[in-house]
């Protein structure tokens, strides 16, 4: 796997006629995690989408090396399929053999493999999204509110999973207003970049 890297220089984001933030720069090396904090509507999700390359920044530049994975409020799993099959679709797209996923954290989804995705609860959907990106083998995880709806037990498991990813040389960017406890975690408050 190539050495992942995520860097952004002097980013600005405009929504409508409002500048949400500007002058934001960040550099993440392997093993590093960054938490984006800020009030609702300050642009955390927009920044995640800019870093993912899905939204063009109003100004600035994003450079990334390594594969990206995104978990946001859109689950990208077929609601009518059992969870196991819905996750298997992404394994086929990502060309990952089923047994290769064995050592990954499964976020307690083994018991839910036969449950159609549309019947999952909020917390279960979050765990499914984490399992999807953990299985993708991507080096850079972009997580939008990954701990929403998780109880304290699963929140701990999810943070341990993110920590394991970083310990393995991965990068994680976490947009969350909840406290996140990870080693080597940097914090960026978007409020500092509001014009």
């Amino acid at each position: 796997m190539q050495v992942p890297r995520l860097a952004a220089t002097d980013l600005a984001c405009r929504r409508g006629d409002r500048i949400l933030f500007r002058g934001l720069s960040l550099v993440l090396a392997p093993g590093e995690a960054l938490q984006l904090v800020g009030a609702n509507g300050i642009g955390k999700s927009s920044l995640i989408r800019i870093l993912a390359g899905l939204l063009p920044p109003f100004a600035g530049l994003v450079e990334s090396e390594g594969t990206l994975a995104l978990a946001d409020e859109r689950l990208a799993l077929d609601g009518h399929l059992p969870l196991g099959q819905a996750l298997a679709f992404w394994r086929r797209v990502d060309r990952i053999a089923p047994d290769a996923t064995a050592p990954l954290p499964d976020f307690g989804l083994a018991d839910l493999a036969d449950v159609p995705v549309r019947y999952l609860s909020t917390g279960q959907r979050k765990r499914a999204a984490l399992a999807r990106i953990a299985a993708s083998g991507a080096a850079i995880w972009l997580l939008d509110e990954p701990l929403n709806g998780l109880d304290s037990h699963w929140s701990g498991v999810a943070q341990a999973g993110i920590a394991a990813h970083c310990a393995g040389g991965g990068i994680a960017v976490i947009a969350s207003h909840q406290p996140v406890d990870l080693p080597h975690l940097a914090r960026t408050a978007l409020a500092d970049y509001v014009p």
Binding site: G53, D72, V93
Partner: peptide, 12 residues
């Protein structure tokens, strides 16, 4: 589009 499939494909 609504379920985020096109976003995920774009990332890949």
């Amino acid at each position: 589009v609504e379920a985020g499939f096109f976003d995920q494909w774009a990332l890949r």
